[in-house]
């Protein structure tokens, strides 16, 4: 399969993740959709790495995975803290930071 097919799949996954981030209200699902966007970017990075026969893209993908793991850790910790304070788990109702 040519590299273009992989890039098309990565673009579709990224767009689906973006739609999910925009439309869903549950912050857990918003985090999942962020993972989708990161995975789409990862697929493009690995595809370009294969295209040039160079390992830099794979290292980049691994670092993206590390950052995603950190983001999940902090995000889920925040969701648990929100739940403990009996605040609504809904991104439309959590607007204290809005100013």
């Amino acid at each position: 399969m040519s590299i273009a097919w992989y890039l098309a799949v990565s673009a579709i996954v990224f767009s689906l993740g973006a739609v999910g981030v925009i439309t869903r209200r549950n912050p857990l699902v918003v985090l999942l959709c962020l993972e989708l966007m990161l995975n789409g970017a990862n697929l493009a990075l690995v595809a370009f790495s294969r295209m040039w026969g160079n390992g830099d893209g794979q290292i980049f993908a691994l670092i993206v995975m590390t950052v995603a793991a950190c983001e999940v850790c902090i995000g889920l910790g925040m969701i648990v803290a929100i739940y403990r304070r009996r605040l609504p788990i809904d991104v439309d109702d959590l607007r204290e930071l809005q100013g």
């Binding site: 040519s2 590299i3 493009a44 294969r50 295209m51």
Partner: peptide, 19 residues
């Protein structure tokens, strides 16, 4: 994204990647 990724002038994008 599709325009940006697939409409580039990169010829290698149609290949199967470097050996």
């Amino acid at each position: 994204l599709l325009i940006a990724l697939l409409g580039t002038g990169l010829e290698a994008i149609e290949g199967k990647g470097a050996g």
